[in-house]
Design a binder for these strands. Structure first.
Length: 389
DNA sequence: TCTGGGGTCCTAGGACCC
DNA sequence: TCTGGGGTCCTAGGACCC
């Protein structure tokens, strides 16, 4: 009875559904959650989807497609608290819960069937609980593998359950377009279509060597597994000891494109402070500092530099990204977005700084810690580098 | 006024080492 | 003097996910 032990639970139009709890008067109208400027749609309710609105659509296009759409601003603190409650509901069923984002998770229910019934019964019970306690609906895919459960939950939307027993994996997957597979995006879909591989079944019946020749060893093998639903990986529970982040970063699109170096360097300082603050809160430091620049034509470049010692010091990271920016030698080039990312993160306790004789650097780490303390006491707005005033 | 922000993983070339 | 081969690290870009 546990040949389909994996559940993929996905909230339906999560941000929109949560936002509409406060505005029941709007449930029959097209509603999206998103910012107002140069942003994209974060979530669209099912009424809005009838107009072609969906997540990631630019807000400007959304308004053109549906001029009377109601736009609600995201309220992340509410989203996070609803998400935390939902995840707790999952953990009442099994400790093996891998959260993929605020609104979806994989559950391995092998250890719960004796107590709670079949995976399908567990799925229905979860859906009822979440509906009663949170006032939102969700959809569940039930299968033996992560990728099949994921595809199944998408097919179950909205407000449904799709179960795919092992014997039915091929008949379930093979008629679908290749783009439905978890991990096949726009580019890979177009590539496969160009090779005449339109359905998952087409991929499934293509020799492995052919797939690997056309798509590379790794992607070829991966696609074959996806097409037969034979991917096997254990979930890694999100709570408790788990893998630390590999990188942390922040980027932001300017309200208007700019070529003003002062504006850009100040923005890099804001972003750096945000990232290093999070790093210190997480107790990590990193060696590789990456600058991201997106130009007004949307082309995007990155430049990175790996240091000999890991750091979490705001001034050091900011100096590194400023160097990288200046090395680009831009002159009157309009910049749309800049970003800062620190990679190669390791626990701070494992970093042994070699203090160079006469180095005027210590003091900055102390200053950061003072800033962190003040931020905790008075809030982020209270403390910021002088150049940001 | 098209096109956010947070991540992960893979590829490919060059440097460098054995 | 004429061409190997493997492994690791670094850098840049790109695909994909939510």
């Amino acid at each position: 009875m546990t040949d389909t032990p994996l559940l993929h639970v996905d909230m339906d139009a999560f941000y929109a559904s949560v936002a509409l709890r406060e505005r029941p008067d709007l449930v029959d109208q097209p509603v999206v959650v998103g910012g107002n400027g140069r942003g994209v749609v974060l979530a669209a309710n099912y009424v809005a989807r009838r107009y072609g609105l969906r997540s990631a659509l630019p807000m400007t296009r959304a308004r053109r497609l549906c001029p009377h759409v109601v736009v609600l601003a995201p309220d992340y603190s509410t989203f996070m608290s609803v998400s935390a409650s939902v995840m707790e509901t999952f953990r009442d069923v099994t400790p093996v819960v891998e959260a993929m984002s605020l609104d979806e998770a994989f559950l391995d229910v092998r250890g719960a069937t004796r107590r709670l019934g079949t995976p399908t019964e567990i799925a229905e019970r979860l859906r009822a609980t979440i509906h009663d306690e949170q006032g939102i609906t969700c959809s569940v895919g039930v299968a033996a593998s992560v990728s099949v459960a994921k595809v199944a939950s998408r097919r179950a939307k909205p407000d449904g359950v799709v179960v795919v027993p092992p014997a039915e994996v091929a008949s379930f997957l093979h008629p679908l377009d290749v783009g439905e597979l978890y991990g096949v995006g726009e580019k890979t879909q177009a590539l496969l279509h160009r090779f005449g591989l339109l359905t998952v079944g087409d991929v499934a019946h293509t020799p492995l060597q052919t797939l690997q020749r056309d798509l590379g060893d790794h992607l070829g093998r991966h696609l074959r597994h996806l097409a037969w639903g034979t991917d096997r990986r254990d979930l890694s529970p999100t709570v408790g000891p788990h893998e630390p982040e590999r990188s942390m970063g922040a980027d932001e699109t300017f309200a208007r494109d700019t070529d003003d170096r002062d504006v850009i360097v100040r923005e890099l300082l804001r972003l750096t402070a945000r990232v290093t603050g999070r790093m210190r809160a997480a107790g990590v430091a990193g060696r590789t500092v990456t600058l991201k620049v997106r130009f007004s034509d949307f082309t995007t470049i990155t430049r990175s530099r790996t240091r000999s010692e890991a750091t979490d010091v705001t001034v050091e990271v900011h100096r590194a990204v400023t160097h990288l920016y200046d090395a680009l030698g831009l002159r009157r080039v309009r910049v749309r977005l800049v970003g800062v990312r620190v990679e190669g993160l390791v626990p701070r306790a494992t970093v042994h700084r070699q203090l160079v004789l006469g180095e005027p650097e210590h003091g900055w780490a102390e200053a950061d810690r003072a800033v962190d303390r003040a931020t905790r006491r008075f809030g982020a707005a209270a403390v910021r580098p002088a150049s940001l005033w």
